[in-house]
Design a binder for these strands. Structure first.
Lengths: 134, 134
DNA sequence: CCCTAAAAGGATAAAAAATGTCTTGTTAGG
DNA sequence: CCTAACAAGACATTTTTTATCCTTTTAGGG
């Protein structure tokens, strides 16, 4: 349970690598993939998702590549994980009110709410800066 | 991410139902399944897992069925979830030392450790008693 | 001793999700 | 206009989830 998928793992590896580069250094996807040992085509999909929400910036054509969308101090692990894995939702019940038929009476509900909160807090408290420092 | 599977959901529903029964009341699997709206064959598998680790006691034959292995105050949600979903492991890295090649240098590792700890703490703090009370 | 009730266990199947790959399109530089 | 690089969508493979079914074991009652 609660297991991060490969996608999430790859996503973290890739963006932490980016964060560890000198600022303004544009990185090729193929280089990143090789460095963090992830299939390049798969990493491409992941970085596309990052790009859409501004976590990374991308440039096409010759001399193109990727760099962080913000300074690493301003990107949290929570953002990275949710970008590729979707929102952190330990139980279906936690998804918006009324989704769960047992909603009103369900005693387990608030427990999952608490789990969700704790996990989010931990992940939100970690930035790419910390993760990329030697 | 972090999503409980149906199996986990069914497991909780089933055992909470048991916990809500008068002590020493032996319940038929078919009755439990109908009451909590879970396929009986699937619930059977789940209760077999419960039975193996003593979370429930089972009796075969006429007049047989299931009841809780311990008083509901002594069974935590953590036990129930881990019984059917396996240990709570947010990231492969968290599994025993050395499983992850990046183990030594991996900065993300301790973060997942913290996540794991928080989740376990929340779930371990809830008992079937609380969940089954009106 | 047999018959029926009930759970245990194993094999199998269908559906969904994860994990990748491939092809084509788009953008930019030289 | 040629090449480099990312974007986007379709497709394929594998694994996991979500069951179902059939046979076996255990137990009670006539």
């Amino acid at each position: 349970m609660m297991e991060l998928t490969r996608k999430g793992e790859y996503a973290i590896r890739g963006i932490v690598y980016l964060a560890a580069q000198p600022p303004d250094r544009v990185c090729l996807l193929s280089d990143i993939a090789a460095a963090v040992d992830v299939p390049a085509t798969f990493l491409a999909k992941i970085f596309q998702q990052f790009s859409k929400i501004g976590l990374v910036k991308s440039y096409r054509g010759t001399g193109g590549g990727f760099l962080l969308g913000r300074v690493p101090e301003k990107i949290t692990l929570l953002e990275v994980v949710e970008a590729v894995e979707g929102p952190i939702v330990p139980n279906r019940c936690v998804v918006g009110a009324g989704e769960c038929v047992r909603d009103v009476t369900c005693k387990v509900h608030p427990v999952w709410k608490r789990v969700q909160g704790q996990v989010r807090d931990v992940l939100a408290g970690v930035t790419l800066k910390e993760l990329s420092e030697v």
